Computed example of a mutant assay.
Amino acid sequence: MTEEKKSWRGKPRPGSGARGFHKGTSKPAPRRPGLPPEGPILLYGLHTVEAAFANKDRKRLKLYATENAVNRLQERGVKIDVPIEMKRPKELDRMVTKDAVHQGMILEADPLPAYGPEELRGARLVLALDQVTDPHNVGAILRSAVALNADAVVTTERHAPEEGPVLAKSASGALDMIKHVRVKNMARFVTVMKDQGFGCIALDSDGPASLEDTEFTDKTVLVLGSEGKGVRQGVREACGLLARLDMPGEIRSLNVSNAAVLSLYVARIKMGL
């Protein structure tokens, strides 16, 4: 079905992520999940904005900021290559959701390109998330993946957060520092990666061995699933290798973002990275 972009007076509001509307209705037109949001998005917070200015793949449009925030960016060596519109803090508050910590700066920018598996040439350590939907968790995982020097984070197109202010803020700049690859079918992606020489390990509480006791290859994909459901059966079968994270304390399971940190740390040690 053809999408027609209607709006408030002809164009979507900057940063609203507004989708096209069906002619004669107020409901959004359908859009294939997993694609970047339509129209510009708003990125806010010091680390998020600073990383967006440093990313050559990020198309930046306009900076809304207080004078102090502009000075702070410049003191940190950020080259501001877009028009600046000076704003008071309360004006910035009205541009974002309640309780959003913008630190005096909001960058209007286009979403990042929709990276595909071809971005993984030369990768050694990849973290894949099977239908992890919470943008706070995915943002935290992106941040940890950068800290532990993973090559990419892979999510499914459906049942995964699209790029937006909450994901970007939770990632604290990491969204612009690591490739975020989106795939249509996680089981098929795992199969392709195995054909390319990757060992694929699904984290599962019923895994036959701990991750520390699991044999790693020199190229590895770690697959984590959503809280509650875990890695789906078809994806586990595609991996072929299951491992568990053994916890010595009374609580035996971890939040998925914490499990990602521990898994990446163990993987780096086992792979000699």
Rank of each mutant, 00 (worst) to 15 (best):
A209F: 12
S210P: 11
S210G: 15
S210I: 08
L211Y: 02
L211E: 01
L211A: 04
E212V: 13
E212C: 14
E212L: 15
D213V: 08
D213N: 12
D213S: 13
T214S: 12
T214N: 08
T214W: 04
E215M: 12
E215C: 10
E215A: 15
E215T: 14
T217G: 13
T217Y: 12
T217H: 11
D218F: 13
D218P: 07
T220L: 11
T220K: 05
T220I: 11
L222T: 01
L222S: 02
V223I: 09
V223F: 03
V223Y: 01
L224K: 02
G225L: 00
G225N: 02
G225W: 00
S226T: 10
S226Y: 05
S226F: 06
S226C: 11
S226L: 09
G228N: 07
G228P: 06
G228I: 06
G228V: 06
G230M: 04
V231K: 00
V231I: 06
V231Y: 00
R232I: 13
R232S: 14
G234I: 05
G234R: 05
G234H: 06
G234K: 07
V235M: 04
V235N: 01
V235D: 00
V235I: 08
V235L: 03
R236V: 01
R236N: 02
E237S: 08
E237V: 07
A238T: 05
C239N: 02
C239T: 04
C239R: 01
C239A: 09
G240Y: 03
G240N: 04
G240V: 04
G240A: 06
L241K: 03
L241C: 05
L241M: 07
L242N: 01
L242D: 00
L242T: 03
L242S: 02
A243E: 03
A243L: 07
A243I: 03
R244H: 11
R244N: 10
L245T: 02
L245F: 03
L245I: 12
D246G: 11
D246Y: 10
D246K: 15
D246C: 13
D246W: 11
D246P: 08
D246E: 15
D246H: 14
D246T: 14
M247P: 04
M247Q: 07
M247F: 06
M247I: 10
M247G: 05
P248W: 12
P248G: 09
P248F: 10
P248R: 10
G249F: 10
G249Y: 09
E250L: 10
I251C: 11
I251H: 12
I251L: 15
R252W: 09
R252Y: 09
S253M: 15
S253P: 08
S253G: 12
S253H: 13
L254S: 06
L254V: 06
L254N: 04
L254M: 12
N255I: 15
N255F: 10
N255S: 15
N255T: 13
V256E: 00
V256S: 02
S257A: 14
S257P: 08
N258M: 11
A259V: 03
A260S: 08
A260Y: 00
A260C: 08
V261N: 04
V261A: 08
L262S: 05
L262Y: 04
L262H: 05
